[in-house]
Amino acid sequence: MSERWLDVCAAEDISDDTPLAAAVEGKEIALYRVDGAVYATDNLCTHGSARLCDGFLEGHEIECPLHQGRFDVRNGRALCAPLTADIQAYPARTEGERVFVRFDIQT
């Protein structure tokens, strides 16, 4: 398996309180800024197929707008009912004025 860092968006596009949706090679992810750090996860809730970018971000937790389940944006872990499955989290970094997200690919 190899890793690939992809340029996703301008760093200024991600605000401290509002998640941002981005499409990367046909995959929709959500980006979050918490205490200056950028995090990335899949954008679709595992419970109700709601877009997490439409949810409420509080600290490191994103709340699904459909049934109020919460995920940790640092690792994708489901934190409460009705969630039973985690979401995929992706390493993210800021270089200059751009945000890059790492995707592992099968080789």
Rank of each mutant, 00 (worst) to 15 (best):
M1H: 07
R4H: 10
W5Q: 08
W5K: 09
L6Q: 14
D7F: 09
D7I: 12
C9F: 11
A10E: 13
A11G: 10
E12P: 10
S15A: 12
D17W: 10
D17C: 07
T18R: 05
T18Q: 07
T18D: 05
A22L: 00
V24F: 05
G26K: 02
I29P: 00
Y32P: 03
R33G: 00
D35P: 02
A37T: 09
L44T: 08
C45N: 13
G48K: 11
S49Q: 05
A50H: 09
A50R: 07
R51A: 08
C53W: 10
D54E: 15
D54V: 15
D54F: 15
L57N: 05
L57F: 07
G59T: 12
H60N: 03
I62H: 08
E63R: 13
P65N: 04
H67K: 02
R70V: 15
D72C: 11
V73A: 12
R74L: 14
G76R: 15
R77Q: 14
A78W: 09
A81H: 09
P82N: 02
L83Q: 14
L83R: 08
T84V: 11
T84I: 07
A85G: 00
A85V: 00
A85E: 03
D86H: 08
Y90M: 05
P91Q: 06
P91F: 02
P91W: 02
E95H: 05
G96A: 02
G96P: 05
R98L: 08
R98K: 07
F100C: 07
V101N: 07
R102D: 01
I105W: 10
I105F: 10
Q106S: 02
